[in-house]
């Protein structure tokens, strides 16, 4: 057929598979794809279906995805092994406008699996460290067992200021952070909005509180970037499932500047 079928995915080989926590794992794919941090790919397991997964790395040589087992597709991906293949298409969506962030300091706030796309920003910054000023990282998880990217956390700590918290610690596990909500750590920290950008990714309730705290610290709405999550089928702004009022989460997002979506009733 003489046409470009945008829905046809291409095979991607898994070159690394890391179990991050009880229900979360990361896979590294042998794919060279130019993309921005915050963009996503559509992952297919033939026969099972397709799912939107955000890219959590920043490299021209490979693609890393962090996946939680929550549905049919993600469960099927978790059953794959190193050297197996799956199908992907993308990258899709608007990621973080890193060029606009240049010469600024960045406050990164993530909760749970929302840390995944933010990892892409950190890796981007690390490739061109002199383009950015201070990087503050606030990340929160439910328990120490849920902490993701333990391997990378060490290097983040040497290069940037990392504030880690867990909601509770029922098993009294040793970890390098505080017990409490990540919003508390953010509240206590001392910085203002001058030359700063804040990026948030996490559950909607966390985003709501974090935006409030940032505004108290003097941040303008156009200095705050948030990510949204919706059901996606096509990834290219046709199928309609991901609409947040008039915005297509897949094409206009998933990263929005806060002032673009704050007035949407369905945000």
């Amino acid at each position: 057929m003489a046409k470009d079928n945008i829905y046809v995915p291409t095979p991607a080989k898994i070159i690394d598979y890391v179990i991050e926590s009880g229900d979360t794992f990361s896979i590294k794919l042998d794919v060279k794809m130019e993309h921005d941090p915050g963009q996503f790919v559509m992952c297919s397991i033939p026969g099972i279906g397709e799912s939107a997964i955000s890219i959590c790395s920043f490299s021209r040589d490979y693609l890393e995805l962090n996946i939680r087992e929550v549905g049919n597709v993600t469960n099927a991906i978790s059953r794959l092994k190193k050297d197996d293949s799956l199908l992907i298409r993308g990258p899709y969506g608007h990621g973080y406008p890193m060029d606009d962030f240049k010469d600024n300091s960045i406050v990164i706030i993530g909760g749970g699996s929302g840390v995944a796309p933010l990892k892409g920003i950190i890796e981007y910054v690390d490739t061109r460290r002199s383009d950015f000023k201070y990087i503050d990282i606030f990340i929160g998880y439910r328990t120490p067992e849920d902490i993701l990217f333990k391997k990378q956390l060490k290097s983040w700590k040497t290069n940037h200021k990392v504030h880690l918290s867990v909601d509770k610690n029922p098993n009294k596990t040793k970890f390098d952070g505080k017990v409490g909500f990540v919003t508390e750590l953010l509240k206590q920290s001392d910085f203002d909005n001058k030359g700063r950008i804040a990026v948030i990714c996490g559950p909607p309730i966390m985003i709501k509180f974090v935006v409030g705290i940032l505004k108290d610290k003097g941040f303008n709405e156009d200095q705050i970037f948030v990510s949204a999550e919706r059901m996606m089928q096509c990834g290219v702004g046709f199928c309609g499932h991901c609409m947040i009022n008039g915005k297509y989460c897949c094409k206009d997002g998933p990263v929005f500047r806060y002032d673009e979506i704050k007035d949407l009733p369905e945000k």
Binding site: G47, I48, N72, N75, A76, R79
Partner: peptide, 9 residues
């Protein structure tokens, strides 16, 4: 049947 055989919910 196909979905069960594929291990899909």
């Amino acid at each position: 049947l196909k979905q069960v055989l594929l291990g899909k919910d």
